[in-house]
Amino acid sequence: MSKKIIVFGEVLLRLSPPNNLKIFKSKTFDAHYGGAEANAGASLALMGCNVNLVSALPQNELGTSAESEMLSYGMKTNIIKQGERIGIYYFEQGASERPGRVIYDRNSSSFSTLKKGTIDWKTIFKDAKWFHWSGITPALSQDLAEVCEEALIIASEMGLTISVDLNYRPSLWNYGKKANEIMPDLIKYCDVLLGGIDDSENCLAINTTGKDDFENVYKKWQEKFSKLKTIVSTLRYDANASSNTIAAVLWSEAKLYRSKEYKISHIIDRIGAGDAFMAGLIYGILTWPENLEKASEYALAASCLKHSIAGDINLSGVNDILALMQGADGGRVVR
């Protein structure tokens, strides 16, 4: 797919204890690179899309390693080289009724110290069709919230379709501002939004009641953010750390689409499943713009497959995802 997609976010080093060990007793850690926006971009590149990742990394071996990993998926990169450290997070894989756990170590990382005016957005957005960001970036600092706004203003002026994954992480909003004080001024530029209705008040400063259904909530969102064309939520049922049932709801032009459900009986790694969904949604909207129901089903199938893959990034290609959509399952060996 020749249409250029720009993704903006932090590339992180992920360290995980092997074999479902707890962090405090682990002597070794498996290393992966990822990050919400980078995960989505890498997945899109593996689907054949023309993707450019915008981020910042230190000028050292870890920065070089992280960028090399991103390039290996087929993405192009615009990396600002600054600072001395890459952001890190530790992920403790849960099992059964023991939940997974994330510990962030990303303060003062190269990305978190980016400032407005550092990135030449007009050059980056030249000939681009789509811009994707997430709510994780403005959670990290006031400066990054301003960088996001700078990018969104220019992307909007240049006519790009803009998507956002709310990705509400309460533990990251610790610089004195709440998400609902920052995010509404950024969401107003967006065309496509992925987020749960339980984030309505926390992220969007829109009150809902326990009686509000999807349509009522989405109508409230679109009334406040008139540029929104498509709103999507992913759903999890009967969930523990080892098995989930997942589904999705998509709302566009006052129509609500409910997806099929997937029962995932043995989760290998659920980190990045939402990013796999986001990548699938972007691919689906660009590929089948007149069939958003198919785009939603494609996104959910991509997310389902990510649960079977270790690391942050969905390694499934278009044929794998379409095969699952069309009824293929893991009960056979492909020969």
Rank of each mutant, 00 (worst) to 15 (best):
G195N: 12
D198N: 11
D199Q: 14
D199W: 07
N202S: 09
N202M: 05
N202F: 01
C203A: 08
L204N: 05
I206C: 01
N207W: 00
T208N: 00
T209S: 10
T209F: 04
K211Q: 14
D213V: 03
D213L: 06
F214Q: 07
E215G: 03
E215V: 11
V217F: 05
V217Q: 06
Y218F: 11
W221C: 01
Q222D: 03
E223A: 11
E223L: 09
K224T: 02
F225I: 02
K227T: 01
T230N: 09
I231E: 04
T234M: 05
T234I: 06
L235A: 10
R236L: 03
R236W: 07
Y237F: 15
D238S: 13
A239F: 11
N240W: 04
S242I: 02
S243I: 05
N244D: 07
N244Q: 09
T245Q: 08
T245S: 07
I246M: 07
A247D: 14
V249G: 02
V249C: 09
V249N: 06
V249S: 06
L250D: 04
S252F: 10
E253V: 09
E253I: 08
K255C: 13
K255A: 14
L256E: 15
L256P: 08
Y257M: 13
R258I: 14
K260E: 15
K260I: 15
K263E: 15
I264N: 10
S265H: 15
S265I: 14
I268W: 06
I268M: 06
I268E: 07
D269Y: 05
D269E: 12
R270H: 12
R270S: 12
R270A: 10
I271A: 08
G272R: 07
A273P: 03
D275E: 13
A279S: 15
L281S: 00
G284N: 09
I285H: 02
L286T: 13
L286K: 13
L286M: 15
